[in-house]
Amino acid sequence: MHFPSKEQIAALQRQCPRGTKVELLGMDDPQAPPTGTTGEVMGVDDAGQLLVRWETGSSLSLIPGVDSFRIVQKGGKA
């Protein structure tokens, strides 16, 4: 498995800060919430995954570049 650099993690944290709202467009995982489900980014882990709390109550992470999603509303400080 390829782990992102510290710079790549920092860029992802700027792109999707805590509180960002995302919508799931597609995920190849049997535990995935339904397409169209929205969630809130809780953070970015050391592997570059977005830690998401989904409106369904699950907390399955998104993998940028693998899973398909869109930012609905950017979080963090304005």
Results as ranks from 00 to 15, higher is better:
Trp54Gln: 09
Pro34Thr: 08
Thr20Asp: 04
Gln73Arg: 14
Asp45Val: 10
Pro34Glu: 12
Cys16Ser: 06
Leu24Ile: 06
Pro64Arg: 06
Met1Glu: 11
Ile63Leu: 13
Leu24His: 09
Leu60Glu: 08
Ala32Lys: 13
Gly39Thr: 07
Ser59Asp: 12
Leu51Lys: 15
Gly48Tyr: 05
Gly76Met: 05
Pro17Arg: 08
Gly75Leu: 03
Ser59Pro: 00
Asp45Ala: 11
Phe3Gly: 01
Leu51Trp: 05
Pro30Lys: 08
Ser61Cys: 06
Gln13His: 01
Ser5Phe: 09
Gln31Glu: 12
Arg14Asp: 13
Pro30Leu: 14
Ile9Lys: 12
Val22Phe: 04
Glu55Ser: 13
Ser59Gln: 03
Pro34Ile: 09
Asp29Tyr: 14
Met1Gly: 15
Val72Ala: 05
Ser59Val: 06
Thr56Asp: 15
Leu62Thr: 07
Gly57Ala: 10
Pro17Asp: 02
Gln49Tyr: 11
Ser59Leu: 00
Glu55Val: 10
Pro30Arg: 15
Lys74His: 00
Val66Leu: 14
Ser68Ala: 15
Pro4Cys: 05
Asp29Met: 11
Val52Ser: 12
Lys21Pro: 00
Asp45Tyr: 13
Gly19Trp: 06
Arg53Tyr: 08
Asp28Glu: 12
Met27Phe: 07
Gln8Trp: 03
Glu7Gly: 08
Phe3His: 06
Lys74Tyr: 01
Gln8Asn: 05
Val22Glu: 13
Arg70Leu: 11
Ser5Pro: 08
Cys16Phe: 10
Ser59Trp: 01
Gly57Asn: 10
Leu25Lys: 11
Ala78Cys: 08
Val72Gly: 03
Cys16Lys: 00
Ala10Trp: 01
Pro33Gly: 02
Met1Val: 09
Gly36Asn: 08
Ser68Gln: 14
Gln8Gly: 12
Glu23Ser: 06
Pro34Ser: 08
Ile63Glu: 05
Arg70Ser: 10
Lys74Ala: 02
Lys74Pro: 02
Leu12Gly: 02
Gly76Cys: 06
Ser61Lys: 14
Ser68Thr: 09
Gly39Ile: 07
Gly75Arg: 10
Ser68Phe: 10
Arg53Phe: 14
Leu51Thr: 11
Gly57Glu: 11
Ala10Met: 07
Gln49His: 13
Ala78Trp: 04
Ser61His: 15
Ile63Pro: 00
Thr37Ile: 02
Arg18Trp: 03
Arg18Lys: 15
Ile63Asp: 00
Gly65Ile: 03
Thr37Gly: 04
Val22Leu: 09
Thr35Arg: 08
Ala10Gly: 01
Asp46Cys: 02
Pro30Ser: 10
Thr37Cys: 05
Ser59His: 11
Ile63Met: 11
Glu23Phe: 00
Asp29Phe: 15
Cys16Gly: 02
Glu23Cys: 01
Gln31Cys: 13
Glu23Trp: 01
Pro33Phe: 05
Ala47Cys: 05
Lys77Asp: 09
Ser58Arg: 14
Gly75Asn: 07
Val44Cys: 14
Leu62Ala: 01
Lys74Asp: 00
Glu23Gln: 15
Gly65Pro: 03
Gly48Ser: 03
Thr20Cys: 02
Gly43Asp: 10
Ile9Gln: 04
Ile63Gly: 00
Met42Glu: 15
Gly26Arg: 07
Phe69Glu: 04
Gly43Ile: 09
